[in-house]
């Protein structure tokens, strides 16, 4: 009996770790990108794999803060692309990036409403009108899209009274798609990516509140040269085209 336990104790770590390593010896390039970049970055990754034989681009998307926290805690990564400069500056300050990050795209806020616009929302003024009682959902001020929402409202001198302050654009969009909310403030690219599930209402006021998306190769990259090449691809013509198709603005 004791021998069986001993065998289990020896084998267990082997079993637990065998799933992680990856069997083939091909080169892996690990890219961390903000959630809003998922679509275009998948295309960019495919193009990179097509032109670099034997290279496997592993794309991992998430909230920018989460991504930076992962890099801070030592997660293996070669390239980092965030949805705002504030989060990227944290990575720069910690010496995690290789060189200065470069802005490759911009994004602005738009109003998302359920199909058919049941509450008849036309613009920012409707949202702040207490008589209209529009159920508005925004991002919390702690996250980039919420900070942008506050700047847009502040520039117009209106006070928003949201029924919920979510942690991510995805959560805001979910509330609009399900029809729980009458309107949500999200990025124009999110409205585009949601397709028919929501309608977008342009906000002239939002044009001045622009979110910059920076990208950088990481200091601890396993593949520093490939990382730089991927950054160049994002900043190049193909990257710009793919990003424009997704609704992003040029820097």
């Amino acid at each position: 009996m004791r021998r069986a336990v001993l065998a289990a104790a020896v084998l267990l770590p082997a079993v637990l770790t065998s799933g992680c390593g990856g069997a083939d010896d091909g080169t892996v390039l690990r890219v961390l990108a903000a959630s809003s970049l998922a679509g275009p970055f998948e295309q960019i990754a495919e193009e990179f794999e097509r032109t670099h034989e034997g290279v496997d681009v592993q794309l991992s998307t998430g909230g920018s803060t989460d991504l930076v926290a992962q890099v801070q805690e030592g997660a293996p990564a070669d390239v980092l692309a965030t949805a705002d400069t504030t989060t990227m500056e944290v990575a720069v300050a910690d010496g995690l990036t290789d060189g200065e990050p470069r802005t490759f795209a911009t994004n602005v806020l738009q109003l998302a409403v359920p199909p058919g616009n049941p509450a008849g929302v036309t613009g920012l003024a409707d949202l702040a009108d207490p008589a209209r009682d529009v159920a508005l959902v925004v991002c919390a001020p702690e996250v980039p899209c919420g900070a942008a929402a506050q700047r847009v409202a502040g520039a117009e001198g209106v006070t928003l009274a949201p029924v919920s302050e979510e942690r991510s654009v995805g959560d805001v969009l979910g509330k609009v798609v399900s029809g729980e909310a009458d309107a949500g403030l999200v990025y124009v690219t999110d409205v585009r990516a949601a397709g028919d599930a929501v309608e977008g209402i342009e906000l002239p006021e939002a044009a001045d509140v622009v979110n910059d998306y920076p990208v950088a190769a990481l200091a601890d990259a396993d593949e520093p040269d490939l990382a730089q090449e991927l950054v160049d691809l994002v900043l190049g013509d193909l990257g710009r085209q793919v990003l424009r198709d997704a609704g992003f603005g040029a820097p």
Binding site: A140, E165, D171, G174
Partner: peptide, 27 residues
């Protein structure tokens, strides 16, 4: 809670939701 109720201070933002949000700016 986050999916069904949303997140607003004093109304729907419970302790776990607050922790989740706070991690964004103030670990």
């Amino acid at each position: 809670t986050v999916t069904f109720a949303g997140s607003l201070q004093g109304v729907t933002r419970t302790l776990p939701t607050e922790i989740y949000l706070l991690r964004e700016t103030d670990v």
